[in-house]
Amino acid sequence: MKSNRNLHQTPENIPYTQRRLKTKPTLLLLLVLFIGNILWFVLWLLPNDDSSSENDGSEPIATVDGEAITNQQWLAAMESRYGKETLRHLVNEAVMEKAAEKYKIKVSDEEIDLEIALLRSAQDANDTTLHSLSTEQLRQKVRAQLILDKVLTNDVVVEDDEAESYYEENQSFYNVPTTYRTSLIVVNSKEDAERVEKELKNGSEFDVLAREHSVDAASASLGGDIGFVSSEQASIDTAIFTVVQKLKEQEASKPFVLRDGRYAIAMVSEVMEGHSFSYGEVAEQVKRQLALEQLPPSITPEAFWAEFDAQWIYGEKKK
């Protein structure tokens, strides 16, 4: 198989790790609702005591014009809207753990660290997937994906010379720049920015102020978080990177002007030092990505449900 790939050509030629980040369904909603759905399933399994209104879910948890919305209605609505996909997510992770045991597949912390570093490097500024997950959620998601990738490519052979050629052609992808996990409060005027700065100095939390004052709706809803910023991101306002690279962790900036004329205050919550990965450090990862490119892109963990007798309440077991 010949290799003629370049990171800066068409989307089809972008390394699989980058494409996977941009094409995987957004997991934020599922993870946010994870706890609620687990609670629903626990309550669903527990016996009901019809004589007690405290245990049958009829107690009100909200009212509108005096009319109650009960705990039971709330849990049922969550299950109806999000329960199936959340349960699918849980079953898929369990299936992948079983597959790892059966095929004696190991995933090291170093492999997870490498994948996360490459994902950060490839992150699109408009993709909130990475910074919407906690560190543990992200590591668990990467682990499950690595198990799936290793299972799928277990019998695929990629020659060393092909892998080395790929690495040389796409070396810039493995030169991960220093990135700064950044939060922003964007306002319309210098006066607004100075008022926000004063509130910060008086002890107000940055994420709270972002939700209250930032006019950038997308980041405001996340407490100002815009993810990891680096010098390689053309879509990021250069004024932002110029400021954040001078900040220490947990340090907020002075107000500064964005290229659209609005004002912003930035805070850096985490600094991830850059690293240039040698071929030796990424050889297995490169071979795995090349092997994956030989397989249909639509394979999911559900393809293994039958093998591990996975069943769920939404229908028959997968075949």
Rank of each mutant, 00 (worst) to 15 (best):
I105C: 11
Y174C: 09
Y166F: 15
Q245C: 11
V229T: 07
I236W: 10
I265G: 06
K254D: 11
Q311C: 08
S165V: 00
N170Q: 03
F241P: 03
K201I: 02
R120N: 12
L119W: 07
K201M: 11
Y314V: 07
I105E: 09
N37W: 05
V42L: 11
E316N: 07
S221H: 09
E197W: 03
L33F: 14
D49H: 06
R211N: 04
I105A: 04
D225I: 14
S172W: 03
I147L: 07
T182S: 11
L152W: 00
P60Q: 03
S214W: 02
S172C: 13
L133G: 01
S278G: 15
N6C: 02
K22H: 07
N202T: 10
D237Y: 00
P15T: 09
E281Y: 06
G261F: 11
N170L: 08
N37I: 06
Q285A: 15
V208D: 06
L29I: 07
K198L: 11
T238D: 09
D113I: 03
Q137S: 04
R5F: 04
L30Q: 08
N170F: 00
N48V: 09
T86D: 03
G227F: 05
A252L: 03
S189V: 10
S231L: 13
A94L: 09
M1G: 05
V156L: 01
L90I: 14
E284F: 12
E284Q: 15
T128I: 11
V208E: 05
E93I: 00
S53E: 13
I265Y: 00
E212H: 03
I236T: 15
V107G: 05
V268D: 00
N188E: 09
A94M: 03
E59Q: 14
V157R: 13
S204R: 02
E232R: 10
E316C: 05
S276I: 12
A239W: 02
V64G: 00
K198T: 12
V95F: 06
K150V: 01
P47D: 04
S121Y: 02
T179N: 10
L247E: 02
L87Y: 08
A217G: 11
A220F: 01
E159H: 08
L146I: 00
T17F: 06
S134W: 11
V64E: 02
N154L: 06
F41D: 10
E111M: 14
K2V: 01
L45W: 07
S235T: 11
T70I: 14
A217Y: 06
P15V: 09
A77G: 12
E85N: 08
V156P: 06
Q18A: 15
S58Q: 12
V107M: 05
R262P: 00
G223D: 08
E79T: 05
N92M: 13
I112K: 04
V64K: 06
K254N: 09
V156I: 15
S214T: 05
H275M: 13
L247N: 02
P11T: 14
W312T: 05
A62W: 10
A210D: 12
V244Y: 02
A94T: 08
S276G: 15
E281W: 15
I69C: 04
I226Y: 11
Q18R: 14
V142K: 00
E12L: 11
K246Y: 00
V176K: 09
L45I: 09
L29M: 12
H89L: 03
E97M: 07
D216Y: 12
F304P: 03
V282W: 12
R288I: 09
V282G: 12
N71H: 01
G66M: 01
F41K: 07
E293A: 06
S108N: 13
